[in-house]
Computed example of a mutant assay.
Amino acid sequence: MSRMVFCRKYQQDMEGLDAPPYPGPKGMDVFENVSKQAWGEWLKHQTMLINEKHLNMMDLTARTYLSEQMEKFFSGDDYDAADGYVPEGKDD
């Protein structure tokens, strides 16, 4: 049976991750409060931000920026989109 969590992003009980996505308190927070679906959506969004904004993951500033964006993404705050990105079906 899958592990259930109350997802911070969707505000409902959903399937949780199988393991913390990275070590430490922040990884445990994600493991305990973010659904598998929301985590997958974040990974896609994170990849888009890295690529479109040409972020260097060796740069502490870039990693801090992504961490801040992740918190906003999961909490429902306004988060950055990739410059010029138009979601599929939204090109009116």
Rank of each mutant, 00 (worst) to 15 (best):
S2K: 12
M4A: 05
V5C: 09
F6D: 08
Y10V: 00
Q11K: 15
Q11F: 00
Q12E: 14
M14C: 02
E15T: 04
E15P: 01
L17P: 03
L17K: 03
D18M: 07
D18R: 09
A19P: 00
K26V: 14
G27Q: 04
G27W: 13
D29F: 14
D29P: 04
E32M: 14
E32A: 13
V34H: 03
V34W: 01
A38M: 01
A38T: 03
W42R: 02
W42Y: 01
L43H: 05
L43V: 14
K44N: 03
T47G: 08
M48G: 06
I50T: 12
N51F: 11
K53M: 15
K53H: 13
K53T: 05
N56A: 06
N56W: 01
M58T: 11
M58G: 06
T61N: 13
S67K: 05
E68Y: 08
Q69C: 13
Q69M: 08
E71D: 15
K72Y: 07
K72I: 04
F73K: 09
F73H: 10
F73E: 09
F74R: 10
S75V: 08
D78C: 02
D80L: 04
A82S: 09
Y85P: 00
V86P: 01
E88D: 12
E88T: 12
K90M: 13
D91M: 05
D92S: 07
